[in-house]
């Protein structure tokens, strides 16, 4: 795969200060890089910011999506490493939202020299309860989520069908696409959802050797405080900061404090 293909495949966007330390913002399940739109401009004033969409999400090249590859978090880590190789990135401050925090852990374990620091934004190494571990969900809950995805399948098909055919002679469709964030092919979303919520990366946390910041929210049903504390205890020397934010997307609900926390850690 040539470099240009990786940039197009993953809709890679580089902004900010050339030559400045690199902050890579990785979106989680459910959306795409547009989720960073309230924090990226602030970070771009000081850093070189790399944004991208995982294959299958956002405006990536969906034709490059393969179920085998993206049915495990290693496939998403491959996307991250492909981009790092293509842009020849080193000492990256990798900011992974939600499931992407674990993608960052996996990618950093495989090519440690490419990463300088990890920011795990509302991470959870395992969403399903097991023994004494409280991830917050049961396998049946995850099936329910898959049903919810499925229920919104019909609406998706109707609105997305014209975009999928990708008619260049109908520019109004491009407008429609920019107006509809985070639309994902249901088949892709289903695999991403399963991979996200059924992965167990608790064993991988101990392998993290680089400076790591855990950012959690005051109240977050997907990554509750107990899970944040678990990650903090499992990664030697990690720091944890609780943001004054509610929900699972602090980069949208509290962009200033989120950006400030990332910047201050990246700067140190």
């Amino acid at each position: 795969m040539s470099g240009m293909e990786v940039r197009i495949r993953n809709n890679v966007v580089v902004t900010g200060q050339p030559g400045a330390p690199i902050v890579m913002l990785a979106h989680g399940f459910g959306c795409d890089q547009s989720l960073w739109r309230l924090v990226a401009p602030a970070l771009a004033e000081e850093f070189q910011v790399v944004l991208f969409d995982y294959v299958g999400s956002g405006r990536s090249d969906v034709s490059a999506w393969r179920e085998e590859r993206y049915a495990s978090l290693d496939g998403y880590a491959d996307d991250v490493l492909d981009i790092c190789r293509e842009l020849d990135l080193r000492d990256v401050v990798f900011v992974g939202h939600s499931v992407s925090s674990m993608v960052g852990v996996l990618a950093a374990a495989r090519e440690p020299l490419r990463f300088g620091k990890l920011v795990l934004l509302v991470p959870s190494p395992c969403y399903i309860d097991e023994g004494d571990y409280r991830g917050g969900f049961s396998a049946a809950d995850i099936d329910e989520l898959l049903d919810s995805l499925e229920s919104n399948y019909l609406g998706w098909s109707a609105t997305m069908a014209p975009i999928i055919v990708n008619a260049p002679d109908r520019p109004e469709l491009g407008q429609e696409l920019t107006d509809s964030f985070c639309r994902t092919d249901p088949a892709v979303a289903r695999v991403f959802a399963r991979t996200t919520f059924l992965s167990d990366n608790r064993e991988d946390l101990a392998s993290v050797k680089m400076p790591t910041l855990i950012l959690e929210c005051r109240q977050d049903m997907i990554a509750p405080p107990e899970v944040g504390a678990y990650v903090h205890a499992a990664i030697p020397g990690s720091r944890i900061v609780t943001l004054d934010a509610v929900g699972h997307c602090p980069q949208l609900s509290a962009p200033e404090v989120t950006a400030a926390a990332i910047a201050s850690f990246a700067r140190d």
Partner: peptide, 9 residues
């Protein structure tokens, strides 16, 4: 889950 990952953002 759907609300937190899709609706709210």
């Amino acid at each position: 889950l759907y609300h937190e990952t899709h609706v709210a953002p």
